[in-house]
């Protein structure tokens, strides 16, 4: 379970504090995307198709969550800041806003170990079904917050103080590609519920409002190698953690269908003048371009989203080529795309 510093959600009773908290939410939602994409891209074409689709669905929802956080911030008159050098975290490292001694998130090719030690930790709910939970001692002052608590704090503060905050220009709202607009308190609360439930499920069910397993459980499906399905023997008194069971259709994993890509590649790791350096510079330049396109989208030009989506699609083909390229002469590992802020393509 990720633990956030309390400082990311302080002063929520003021509009400025709420702006800051939502900007933190945008950064946090984004920060999961590079590691998930890295694992996704590491799956060789034609292999591990079910796993690819599950991870892809999770990444898509992380993008939705980031978009919803932007919409809420715009709805209360803030300005999402997506195009800045510090927006992309350094990998390996803690996700933005999380405690320093907490989870260190790497860029690594897909493996079941990565799934259980990183991705399922990122997505782990406060009270995961099937797993024991860690409760705070009564009266103890919490110094950290889970993601669910973070969003709940935002929600409670909006309920308490936010009814006059929704003065943002509705024309700034992005409402295409399945992203709901946020224009008032009700739609903001619904957006927060969607973020939390897609990520964590609900207290009693692993399913999100679309009846899909929440992210944690989707990763667990891959880990256990079976889809999650309702327990056919459920009784009225069956406890929540027995209502579902990982014994649905098989989700096979073929380790040979993963590119042996580098872990935590940086541009500086590649030889000057080499094919992987050029390709990774192009990738980082394109990724920076995605952030710039999203910044434009959420700062006054909602229609620009389709251009951003087009750019994201071009990332995919680039990454697949990079992952199939040796990192250097005589090295057994393949290259991996770098997620670095690169506003100008270097002289090559």
């Amino acid at each position: 379970m990720l633990l956030l510093k309390t400082s990311v959600a302080t002063g929520l009773d003021t509009l400025a504090g709420m702006h800051q908290a939502l900007q933190s939410a945008i950064k946090l939602e984004h920060s999961t995307i590079p590691p998930y994409l890295y694992a996704l891209y590491s799956l060789k074409p034609g292999y591990n198709e079910e796993i690819r689709q599950l991870i892809h669905s999770i990444v898509s929802e992380e993008m939705l969550h980031m978009s919803l956080a932007c919409n809420i911030l715009n709805a209360i008159g803030g300005q999402p800041n997506i195009d800045s050098p510090g927006f992309i975290p350094t990998y390996p490292g803690p996700l933005p806003g999380t405690v320093e001694h907490g989870l260190i998130v790497p860029l690594k090719p897909f493996s079941l170990e990565l799934l259980s030690s990183v991705f399922m930790v990122i997505e782990e709910p406060e009270n995961p079904l099937h797993f024991p939970q860690q409760r705070l001692m009564s009266g103890e002052v919490p110094e950290t917050r889970t993601i669910g608590q973070f969003y709940d704090a935002i929600k409670q503060a909006l309920l308490a103080h936010g009814k006059d905050w929704f003065t943002g220009n509705p024309d700034l709202q992005v409402s295409s590609w399945g992203i709901p607009a946020v224009t008032d308190l009700t739609s903001a609360l619904a957006a927060i519920d969607l973020i939390v439930e897609q990520g964590e499920g609900t207290k009693d069910s692993p399913l999100d409002p679309e009846d899909e397993p929440a992210h944690y459980y989707r990763f667990a499906e891959i880990y256990y190698g079976h889809q999650l399905r309702p327990n056919p023997n459920v009784q009225p008194d069956t406890p929540p953690n027995q209502k579902y069971i990982y014994d649905g259709p098989v989700i096979p994993f073929d380790p040979a269908g993963v590119w042996p890509a580098l872990t935590n590649p940086r541009l500086q790791d590649y030889a000057p003048g080499s094919i992987p350096l050029y390709a990774c510079q192009n990738f980082s330049y394109t990724y920076t371009g995605v952030l710039k396109a999203l910044h434009k989208t959420f700062n006054g030009q909602p229609d620009y989203l389709r251009t951003a989506i087009g750019l994201m699609e071009s990332l995919k083909a680039q990454a697949q080529i990079i992952m199939a390229t040796p990192a250097a002469l005589g090295v057994s590992a393949n290259a991996g795309p770098t997620f670095e802020y690169l506003p100008v393509l270097p002289v090559q």
Partner: peptide, 11 residues
């Protein structure tokens, strides 16, 4: 200065 292509859409 740099003469480049777009930094915010597909090439």
């Amino acid at each position: 200065c740099v003469v480049a292509d777009s930094d915010r859409r597909a090439p």
